[in-house]
Simulated assay, not measured.
Amino acid sequence: MSLIHRTTLSPTKLELLTEWLPRQPWYAGTGGRPELTKAGGFRLDDPRGEVGLEFMVVTDGSGDEAAYHVPLTYRGAPLAGAEQALIGTTEHGVLGTRWVYDGTHDPVLVGQLAAFVRGEAQAQAQSVSDTPDPTVGRSWTGPAQAPSHGSGAVADGPDGTTDVVLDGDPEERLVLRVVRALRPGAGIGSPGGGVLGHVDARWRLPDGAEARAVLVTFHDRAPVA
Rank of each mutant, 00 (worst) to 15 (best):
T141M: 11
T30W: 01
G137Y: 04
A211S: 13
A155H: 14
T8G: 09
D45G: 05
V128T: 15
A213V: 05
S190G: 13
L205D: 15
V128L: 14
E35W: 06
D159V: 13
G185F: 02
D46H: 01
L205Y: 10
G93T: 11
L176P: 02
T37S: 12
E91I: 01
T141D: 14
Y74G: 01
G208F: 08
L86M: 10
G52C: 03
A181C: 02
Q124V: 03
L72N: 09
E15V: 11
V100K: 01
Q112Y: 01
G189I: 09
V58E: 01
G103W: 01
S127I: 07
M1H: 13
A85N: 05
A82Q: 09
A222F: 03
P71M: 06
T90Q: 11
G168L: 08
P206H: 10
E83F: 00
G49W: 04
T12N: 00
P78H: 06
T104R: 07
H92V: 07
A123N: 03
P78K: 05
T59Y: 06
D64A: 14
P191Q: 11
P107V: 05
A125N: 13
V178P: 00
D207W: 12
D220E: 15
G194P: 09
L3H: 13
A181M: 04
A85H: 08
V216K: 06
L174E: 03
A155W: 09
V108H: 00
T59I: 12
E172R: 15
R212T: 13
D60G: 05
A213R: 03
W99Y: 15
T161Q: 10
G76F: 01
P206F: 10
Q84V: 08
V110R: 00
V58G: 00
Q124T: 00
I87R: 08
L9T: 07
L79G: 02
G192I: 11
L174P: 01
K13S: 07
V165R: 03
H149A: 11
